[in-house]
Amino acid sequence: MIYLDNAATTKVFPEIIQNVKIWSEEFFANPNSIHPNGQKSRRAVEQTRHFFSDYSGCKPEDIIFTSCATESNNTIIKGLAEKYPSKDEILLSPIEHKSVLYPVMYLKRKGFKVKFLKIDNSGRIDLDDLKKKISNKTLFVGVIHVNNETGVVQDLETIGKICKERKVLFFSDVVQSFGRIDIPFSYIDFFSVSGHKINAPKGVGFLKKSGELIPLLHGGGQEFGVRSGTENVIGILSIKEALDIWLKRKENFIKRSKNLENILIKQLKEYIPEIKIVSEGYKVPYITTAIFPDVKGQDMVMALGRAGVEVSSGSACSTGSPTPSHVLLSYGFSEEEALRGVRFSFEVETKEEDIIKAVEKTVEIYKKLKRFTGFSL
């Protein structure tokens, strides 16, 4: 199998798989227990917290370990709404992951006003529109760093400066950028991270906060009272190890990904001239979405899977849904076009021959589907 769906999830690094057994035996105790084994686990958790706070440039107590980015996003969004009820307006990019979009829509049903920011021709936030819409009633501005469907990168530094000037909180989902590209942490008040996007196991993530958050989960008061529940010590150690590995490979990964993306796009355009590549400008090279003429994206994904190439249509969380991608609709594509998107995403082990083979299979399957099934809504 050629796996090109790394924006959905990544394989766990072999080094982490080897260490999990060791860590499971060494750090088995509850880190909230005061006996020696419990305190051994606690030290491991706190050392990792300091590692992430040093990397992010914040205080250790502002790093809160969670189970995933979805939990982190919900904790930040709902926690801010509880903390600052007098600020009833949210500014949000229309291309957020659903784990951000849906909690915000939940708050809208509770009476919050939600204003979506305009997207320019490059797929980035229209900064003039942001300046026009931000106000002293704005609870926070939410803008994803790297879009999970298209790879478009937002200018978080400039957005963050605007928010700071207006004394408004700035929140970003950095799941697809964390560890891979530089992030202007000093301009972001709140952000979320997920372990399984950087080759750690599923079930661990963290958030960075600035100031107090009203907790989403109530219980034992772990994680400075922000996230009750026994910490996942093995997961926490795994995500630290994953970032360690990524920091050593990041520069080479970006260089290799640019080459792989060039091959992918060039060959797709050569064999399917009518194909549309979403946002070839301000984007990371490891996520690329193509709009295929006359063939449904989900049909392409299923047929490619049977042929040994694993890709996705839209975000993995909505692959069972017949509705068009809200991200592609926000970029100005029609509903018909938005149903024809296929995403290719790379990882550290993706090879040039993988891309060449994947394109061969993609072109072959596209021609068969176009000939025998056509496209119908």
Rank of each mutant, 00 (worst) to 15 (best):
I2A: 06
A7F: 10
A8T: 14
F13A: 13
E25R: 05
N32F: 07
N32M: 06
S33T: 03
I34M: 13
H35S: 06
Q39E: 11
G57W: 03
D62M: 06
I63Q: 01
T70S: 01
N74V: 01
N74C: 01
K78S: 10
L80G: 02
D88Y: 12
E89P: 00
E89K: 07
I90M: 07
H97K: 10
S99K: 13
K108Y: 11
K108E: 14
K110P: 03
K113Q: 13
K115W: 01
F116P: 00
F116C: 03
D120S: 12
S122V: 13
G123I: 02
G123P: 09
R124H: 00
I125W: 15
L127E: 04
L130S: 09
K133W: 07
S135E: 10
V141L: 09
E149V: 04
V153D: 01
E157N: 09
T158M: 08
I159S: 02
E165K: 14
L169Q: 12
F170C: 02
F170E: 01
S172I: 05
D182P: 00
Y187L: 06
F191Y: 03
S194C: 15
H196V: 02
I198H: 05
F206N: 07
F206D: 07
K209P: 11
S210G: 03
E212T: 11
L216A: 13
G219V: 04
G221W: 08
Q222M: 04
F224A: 15
T230N: 13
G235N: 10
G235Q: 08
L237D: 05
S238Y: 11
E241Q: 15
A242T: 03
A242Q: 09
I245W: 12
N252I: 07
K258L: 12
K258R: 14
L260S: 01
N262R: 12
K266G: 15
L268K: 09
P273R: 00
E274L: 10
E274C: 08
S279W: 04
P285Y: 09
I291G: 00
F292I: 11
F292T: 08
D294I: 15
K296V: 09
A303H: 08
G305V: 03
R306G: 07
A307W: 03
G308S: 07
V309N: 05
E310G: 01
S313R: 00
S313W: 00
G314C: 01
G314L: 00
P324G: 05
S325C: 13
F333D: 03
V342A: 13
S345C: 10
S345R: 12
K351V: 07
E353L: 08
E353D: 15
I355G: 04
A358R: 06
A358D: 10
T362R: 02
V363K: 07
Y366Q: 09
K367S: 09
K368S: 13
S376R: 14
L377R: 11
